[in-house]
């Protein structure tokens, strides 16, 4: 049906007010403020051009944070997609109680990121943890928590994120895999293709656009990685697990360097915008 201009205005108005007031306007006000010497406490404000951004970009801590979040995203997102796809592939054909399995598998994602941090803090610690319990069974000495080890901390936060998010990827990919017509599988089976070729030639082409969409969501969330790491390591040891989001939060609310906090937060948005532009281009090519 054709909507008139008035209809469209009426239908879009509630969303425009909500997103305008609580997302777009704050973001743009924030951008404007970071180009000045504004802080919530000062009364006189002067134009500062890109000074705040220059300060943040020259801060070695922020460089560390960018490096960490790049590794975090480049490792975690492909792992989440691959593992999530693998589990969805197992569930694609009807098995006994499939929707129950799907619900059970969603449980790790239902644990809030903050509770995930609390939980793994204890699971890795000496007296209460699952790791040392198993080692004890094997008669091996106890290990220190990997989140306290500079070399292992980032890898551990990645593993925990994959544990939490891969089940959600399965949840999002399964409808796409289930929708593949049965004939495709039958044709491939009759042609004598191996299970690996069936994944590459039948499943992946069908769910590729969906995986791209899921990948966009995961990438954006990874670039803002915050909750779980805040609890687990607070960015440490040293700067081993510091992310730009933790950096922004620390500057804005802990060390009271509001301009640095708001500017570095805008750099996260810029990162998401770059990935988002690539996503829109790619998804356009696929839909044609």
């Amino acid at each position: 049906m054709r909507l008139t201009r008035r209809d469209r205005l009426l239908l879009f108005a509630p969303l425009a007010i909500l997103l305008g007031g609580w997302l777009v306007v704050p973001a743009l006000v924030g951008l404007t403020a970071t180009l000045t010497t504004y802080t919530p406490l000062t009364t006189s404000v002067a134009f500062a051009r890109w000074q705040n951004y220059s300060d943040v970009l020259h801060d070695p801590q922020f460089a560390e944070a960018v490096r960490n979040v790049a590794i975090f995203t480049l490792v975690a997102v492909p792992l989440e997609l691959a593992l999530g796809f693998g589990i969805a592939y197992l569930l694609r054909r009807p098995i006994r109680g499939r929707s129950w399995w799907r619900g059970l598998l969603l449980l790790p994602w239902l644990v809030s990121p903050i509770a995930t941090g609390v939980m793994w803090h204890y699971l890795f610690s000496g007296a209460t943890g699952v790791v040392n319990f198993v080692l004890g069974w094997l008669g091996r000495p106890e290990l220190g928590s990997p989140i306290g080890d500079v070399r292992l901390a980032l890898a551990t936060t990645i593993a925990i994120e994959v544990w939490r998010v891969a089940p959600f990827v399965t949840f999002l990919l399964l409808p796409g895999l289930v929708a593949i017509p049965e004939e495709r599988w039958e044709q491939a089976t009759l042609a004598g293709t191996s299970w690996f070729q069936r994944i590459v030639k039948v499943a992946l082409p069908e769910v590729a656009p969906l995986m791209l969409t899921v990948g966009m969501l995961l990438t954006g969330q990874s670039l803002g990685a915050f909750d779980t790491i805040l609890i687990l390591t607070g960015g440490g040891p040293g700067t081993a697990t510091l992310t730009p989001a933790l950096y922004s939060y620390d500057r804005a609310f802990v060390t009271n360097d509001w301009p640095a906090g708001a500017a570095s937060a805008w750099l996260i948005a810029a990162g998401v915008a770059v990935v988002g532009a690539a996503y829109i281009r790619l998804s356009g090519r696929w839909s044609r």
């Binding site: 997103l19 609580w22 997302l23 306007v25 704050p26 973001a27 006000v29 924030g30 403020a33 919530p40 969409t213 966009m216 969501l217 995961l218 990438t219 954006g220 969330q221 670039l223 803002g224 915050f226 730009p244 989001a245 922004s248 939060y249 804005a252 509001w258 906090g261 708001a262 937060a265 805008w266 996260i268 948005a269 998401v272 915008a273 988002g276 996503y279 829109i280 998804s283 356009g284 839909s287």
Partner: peptide
Amino acid sequence: GRTVTQGFLVLASLPVMAYVIPLADLSR
């Protein structure tokens, strides 16, 4: 129209941290 729709997905993937600092200031 398609770009606008996909734009909503990009917006959905934007971390809250990106705009919550000025949002807190404005809310105050």
